[in-house]
Structure formats: structure tokens, C-alpha cells
């Protein structure tokens, strides 16, 4: 029923009353895709149309911005969002549906894709469009095996292709002028069909460390093997005047508190120096630290993906290298 030509529909997210950075990156990915295939980009956001946030939409101007507005969407539920998004997708009939790869998207987008008999291509880190784009569908790149392998995926068949874009993979565009229409979309939602009852989000405990303000972070991963071995990295951190951070498994084991965790489920940091010790470099960790100015990796596995983002690397046993480094730092500081 739609008069519109098909294109790329991007769903943005609001975080801390702003459109989140990863949403802009998803929009940049959508424009990459659209340009390669001569498609238009439309954008959608759950919000009332009067929200001043719509004036902050930057990047290449989308054709239409849909304000998805309904009282049942004021708090997130998978049932509510999947139903509302499905209705908008049916109306707009896009060739591609693009999401930022966030925890919220991971919660409902697989359901939504299933309703269209599609499969979400999740966690996309790259898009390659090909010449003769009408006949050659694009290649979507994502990582496998904790970042040790890249995979090329392709969508085939009819129906919209669903993608979620990993943080940091695309650069958010600078604002460009263009004609954009703001349209309100009121989905038909039934409170009885929303089966989950979400509570208010909360923080587990008051933060006592601020990893974001440290200029040097010494971050430790699985390679440390045992809690009893932590003092060797603590000594290095002390010698460097650094904060101690960790990858998820260390915090999961309770060896360091959750607030010291770097990665998609923890903090995102960008210190002057990030020392990754015994951290293999799964993508969930890399997204939290790859913006660091200088990355140093110490790992016994020369093929560990952490070396793909490191400026300096030492391939060796951390139990030999770290004490030697502590000694060298102390000597240099005299």
C-alpha cells in the first residue's frame, strides 16, 4: 500500500536523553549501504513528535524521520517494541532494516526478524557493496570465535534484510543539510499482549572507581589464571600509577569488582595507555577499549585478536613479562 520506493530503515535509540552514538554509527552504516545500492534512508525513533531531540538528528539527512509514538512504548518491552517496529516495517516496506547492536536490540530484534521469516545478521562490523548492486547483494562482515575469524555473510531471497551494527565499526557522519520530513507513526498496541513487566533500571552499587578518568589502565584477563596471581598485575599498576581494570571473566569470577570491567557489558574507556595483559581480545572487550590512544598487549598467543588493535605487543608468558616490566618501570622512574 506504500507509495514509497523501498530503501533502508534505521531504528535509532535514545540514551541519557540523547540519540546514542552507536545509533549515529548505525545511520552511517545505513548510508554506506544506501549509496552502494541507490536507496534512500529513513529513520525511526520511539518518541513523541514534539521531542526536541528530533532537531539533533545529524549526519546525512534522512528522507523521513518517523516518530513512533504510543504510551505503551514509554518503557521498553520486547513485545511492545517488536509489535510497533513490525507495523512500521510493514508500512515502509524497506529492503534493509538497520539497528545499532545494543542490549535492547539483542532482546527483541531476533523476534522481529522471525516475524518476517528473516534472520538478523547481528554484530556487523563491515559492509561491502559490489558493482552492479541490483544483482549483486552486499557482503556483511562479522566476527566469529571471539574475534579470531572474520566471516562474510549474505542475505538471499525476498523480504527485508535485518542488520545490527557493532559499536565503533562505522564513523558517525557530520551533519549535512537536506530536506527531511517528520512523520508521526502511531502503532496499534494492546496492553494485554505485553507479557513482560519491566522494573526501573538501577545501578548495582555506588561506583568507587572511575576508569574513565585514568590516563593509564592495566587490564587483566583470563591469562592470569588464578585470583592468587593478581598481585603481579596490581604491582605493575601501582608502579605505573595506573588503575586496574579487567575483562569480563575476571569480574565474573569475583576476582575484581564489576565496576572495573571494560567491554560492552562494562565500561568504555579511552585512556592514554591501555595495557591488556592475558586478554585475548574478544569483540565484546575490544569495543570497550579500542579508542585508547596507545594499546599494549602482552599475550602468549601471537594470534590472539588483541594484537590486531595493539600498537606494541610482547608475545610471551605474562608471569615472566609482567614482573620484568614492573622492574623496568620502577627503574625508569628511579
Amino acid at each position: 500500500m506504500s507509495e514509497l520506493t523501498s530503501g533502508v530503515l534505521v531504528f535509532l535509540e535514545i540514551k541519557n536523553r540523547e540519540i546514542s552514538r552507536i545509533s549515529w554509527e548505525a545511520m552511517a552504516a545505513a548510508h554506506t549501504l544506501a549509496e552502494g545500492h541507490g536507496l534512500s534512508v529513513d529513520v525511526a525513533l520511539v518518541s513523541s513528535p514534539g521531542n526536541p531531540i528530533f532537531e539533533t538528528i545529524h549526519g546525512k539527512a534522512p528522507r523521513t524521520v518517523y516518530a513512533i509514538d504510543h504510551p505503551l512504548l514509554h518503557e521498553y518491552t520486547a513485545d511492545g517494541f517488536a509489535a510497533a517496529y513490525a507495523q512500521l516495517i510493514e508500512q515502509v516496506n524497506p529492503s534493509y532494516v538497520v539497528f545499532p547492536h545494543t542490549y535492547q536490540v539483542r532482546d527483541f530484534a531476533p523476534c522481529l526478524a522471525t516475524r518476517f521469516k528473516q534472520v538478523l545478521i547481528s554484530d556487523v562490523t563491515g559492509i561491502e557493496t559490489h558493482a552492479g548492486a541490483e544483482t549483486a547483494p552486499p557482503t556483511f562482515i562479522r566476527q566469529l570465535l571471539q574475534g579470531k575469524l572474520n566471516a562474510h555473510y549474505r542475505h538471499r531471497g525476498t523480504g527485508p534484510c535485518f542488520l545490527s551494527i557493532q559499536a565503533g565499526a562505522f564513523r558517525a557522519d557530520a551533519a549535512e543539510a537536506g530536506a527531511t520530513t517528520l512523520a508521526t507513526f502511531e502503532p496499534r498496541l494492546d496492553a494485554a499482549k505485553i507479557r513482560t513487566k519491566p522494573g526501573e533500571p538501577f545501578r548495582a552499587s555506588a561506583q568507587t572507581v572511575d576508569l574513565g578518568s585514568a590516563s593509564i589502565l592495566v587490564s587483566v584477563g583470563r591469562g592470569i589464571k588464578e585470583e592468587a596471581n593478581l598481585p603481579i598485575v596490581q604491582e605493575l599498576a601501582t608502579a605505573l600509577g595506573a588503575e586496574l581494570a579487567a575483562s569480563r571473566p575476571i569480574c565474573d569470577s569475583g576476582w575484581l569488582p564489576m565496576e572495573r570491567q571494560v567491554g560492552s557489558s562494562g565500561q568504555t574507556v579511552a585512556p592514554k595507555v591501555y595495557l591488556a595483559i592475558g586478554i585475548s581480545g574478544a569483540i565484546q572487550h575490544l569495543v570497550g577499549m579500542k579508542g585508547s590512544q596507545c594499546i599494549v598487549a602482552i599475550n602468549k598467543d601471537e594470534n590472539a585478536p588483541i594484537f590486531e588493535v595493539a600498537d606494541y605487543g610482547i608475545v610471551g608468558d605474562l608471569f615472566d613479562v609482567v614482573p620484568a616490566l614492573t622492574a623496568a618501570v620502577l627503574k625508569a622512574k628511579g
Binding site: 528473516q118 594499546i295 595493539a310 600498537d311 606494541y312 616490566l325
Partner: peptide, 29 residues
């Protein structure tokens, strides 16, 4: 029929040029 196909896998490209510091642990440190 699958709607999404894994066509090929490859080893990742390095995003930065890593300088590997060699030698003994003390030398590398």
C-alpha cells in the same frame, strides 16, 4: 532455504600496525 548464508571465513586484517617487542622478558620490558 536459509535466508542468511555464511559464504566464507578469513583471518582478520590488522587494524593497527603492531610493533612486536622481542627478546627476553627483561629486554622486551
Amino acid at each position: 532455504a536459509s535466508v542468511v548464508v555464511l559464504e566464507r571465513v578469513l583471518l582478520p586484517n590488522k587494524q593497527r600496525t603492531t610493533q612486536i617487542l622481542g627478546g627476553s622478558p627483561a629486554e622486551a620490558a
